[in-house]
Design a protein around this nucleic acid. Structure first.
Length: 510
RNA sequence: GGUUCCGUAGCUCAACUGGAUAGAGCAACUGCCUUCUAAGCAGUAGGUUCGGGGUUCGAGUCCCUGCGGGAUCACCA
């Protein structure tokens, strides 16, 4: 390519509004990216899940699709009954207000309390000579939880009221966490509102011979021809299982949004088998949209000690982690002493931008399919291939643009044609800018925010080289000077957009 | 055991889907702040891409096999 071709290319990029954002394709998709249980707070695993799904949603929007972000809340079942039982027995009326605890944390504490009590009772029964397996069934507190679930299914008023109260606490807690995370949903689905539809569908499938009933009354689907196994859909007592609910939820969603051509489930890879089966069943039921269902499967987040285990207390709490990140950002910033003239509010905002930017970039720069290691002590840096490095690059450019405005250097498109020579680093920046739309497309096609993350790092890194090599305002040729301001401006714009796709803000000063 | 995913520098990750000399960051070492923000830049060192076969003009990438690790195969969700 000749010099002229490059300058023309840049002129074109420079003049493009919404660079890297495609025109509407008319395609409409749904992305589910959070599916919490209401018995415990969100943790690091949820962070990867939610950031990933949120980012994929934004990337798909940039690719011209209409996206509906949804959540499925596992608000019913034995897990929440355990918290309810423990609270009733030991809670002494404790509420988030009375204790000052966040609602999801409080309910989580009672879930732990239940487990402790349960273990104690098992130990006592075993002591008395009972087999362990039998003790697990006979422990009084477990029986209480099961009774409570039955009461709930019968809509016993007291049980229902307690269930609503405790779930309400949890939702308030979740809202605070989601708000801090900077993620949002267009619609919420609750399993308590979808499992009945799932049951109906299973009944229908039974009538039409797609499913079959065993002697004990339980309903199954036979997937042996597809190389899988038989799978339970309704228990002998008629109650639903996980699969039943998911069938109902999927169908309800297509009723709510008839135009969607694809439904994306952002769920960990431990559930690959489940979704394979779910999509097969939906297909068997005759829903042709089942072919458009996709399980966006991501790898687990491991700690140096191995897998996170809530029972062993090795879970990294989402709220605590975000607080720590913001705190670390504050420490770094204060050490560097670069925020003269910042108000308290501005400083706080910056710490949040940096802390969350570091966290999101860290979790999203890795291929979602792969499991990743998170070392709380040293994983998240602020130098090198990190969010703050990219944010810093943006702040540097912002400073240049401020100065350019002060000095009245306003780039004009005709400047670019008059350029004598381009430096290698300038060529390579134009080259990188040119790649941006293709990267957004690739990231969308592969549901991989890491492609955007990797790209924006490369761009920032190259810009820093440019920044070091070329002193913009010492340039005597004003045409070249204005071109470099335009180039810097466009780089800043793309950095901001790309970081926006992974949910990270960029500051003008830091 | 069946199915499936993975194994790349001491550590954490890339490698345009089969192309040229496998690249970044962290950690280590050496330089660079009277010049637009040093959260930066330049450089040194670090590799039998887990082992062994095969396909191909060409393999980190595809096939077979061995070893090591994860996930899953629930009347849990």
């Amino acid at each position: 390519m000749t010099q002229k071709t490059w300058t023309n290319l840049f002129a074109e990029i420079w003049a493009t509004e919404n660079y890297g954002v495609s025109a509407s394709t008319g395609k409409e998709v749904m992305v589910e990216y959070s599916s919490p249980n209401t018995n415990k707070p969100l943790h690091l695993g949820h962070l990867r899940n939610n950031f990933l799904g949120w980012s994929v949603s934004e990337i798909l929007k940039a690719n011209g699709h209409t996206v509906h972000k949804v959540q499925i809340i596992n608000d019913r079942g034995i897990h929440i009954c355990k918290s309810m039982v423990a609270w009733t027995k030991f809670g002494e009326g404790e509420t988030p207000d009375s204790s000052g605890k966040k609602g999801d944390k409080l309910v989580g504490d009672y879930y732990v309390k239940f487990d402790q009590e349960y273990k104690k009772q098992i130990a006592e029964l075993v002591e008395g000579g009972m087999e362990k397996a039998e003790a697990e069934k006979q422990a009084p507190i477990m029986k209480e939880a099961q009774e409570m679930l039955l009461k709930w299914e019968k809509k016993d008023p007291d049980t229902y009221a307690l269930w609503e109260k405790m779930n309400g606490w949890v939702y308030k807690g979740f809202d605070a966490t989601y708000n801090q995370m900077g993620v949002d949903f267009d619609k919420l689905y609750y399993e308590s509102q979808t499992f009945l539809l799932g049951k109906e569908e299973v009944e229908k499938g039974l009538e039409s011979g797609i499913f079959f009933k065993k002697d004990d009354g339980s309903v199954w689907v036979d997937l042996t021809e597809e190389g899988l196994d038989e799978k339970l859909l309704l228990r002998a007592d008629g109650t639903s299982v996980y699969m039943t609910q998911d069938i109902g939820t999927a169908i309800l969603r297509y009723r709510d949004y008839p135009k969607i051509s694809q439904q994306i489930y952002t769920v960990g890879n431990e559930q690959e088998y489940h979704f394979k089966v779910l999509f097969m069943i939906l297909d068997k039921l005759g829903y042709d949209w089942a072919k458009g269902c996709y399980h966006l499967s991501y790898g687990m987040v491991d700690l140096p000690s191995g897998k996170m285990k809530s029972r062993e207390g090795t879970v990294v709490d989402a709220d605590e982690l975000m607080d720590e990140m913001i705190d670390t950002a504050r420490e770094h910033t204060e050490e560097l002493g670069k925020i003269d003239g910042f108000s308290k509010e501005q400083a706080a905002e910056l710490y949040e931008t940096l802390g969350l930017g570091a966290l999101k970039y860290f979790l999203l720069k890795v291929d979602p399919k792969k499991r990743m290691l998170f070392d709380p002590n040293e994983s998240i840096q602020f130098q090198g291939n990190t969010g703050p490095f990219i944010q810093y690059t943006h702040a540097r450019i912002a400073a240049i643009l401020r100065k350019a405005e002060q000095l009245n250097f306003t780039p004009q498109e005709e400047d670019f044609n008059k350029l004598e020579t381009l430096q290698p680093v300038e060529l390579s920046l134009i080259h990188l800018l040119k790649d941006y739309p293709a990267k957004v497309k690739e990231a969308g096609d592969n549901y991989s925010p890491d492609i955007v993350a990797q790209y924006v790092y490369d761009l920032a890194k190259e810009y820093n080289r440019f920044y070091q090599e070329i002193s913009i305002f010492n340039e005597e040729d004003e045409t070249a000077l204005r071109f470099r301001i335009a180039l810097s401006g466009k780089v800043a714009e793309v950095i901001k957009k790309a970081m926006g796709l992974i949910g990270a803000n960029v500051p003008d000063r830091m």
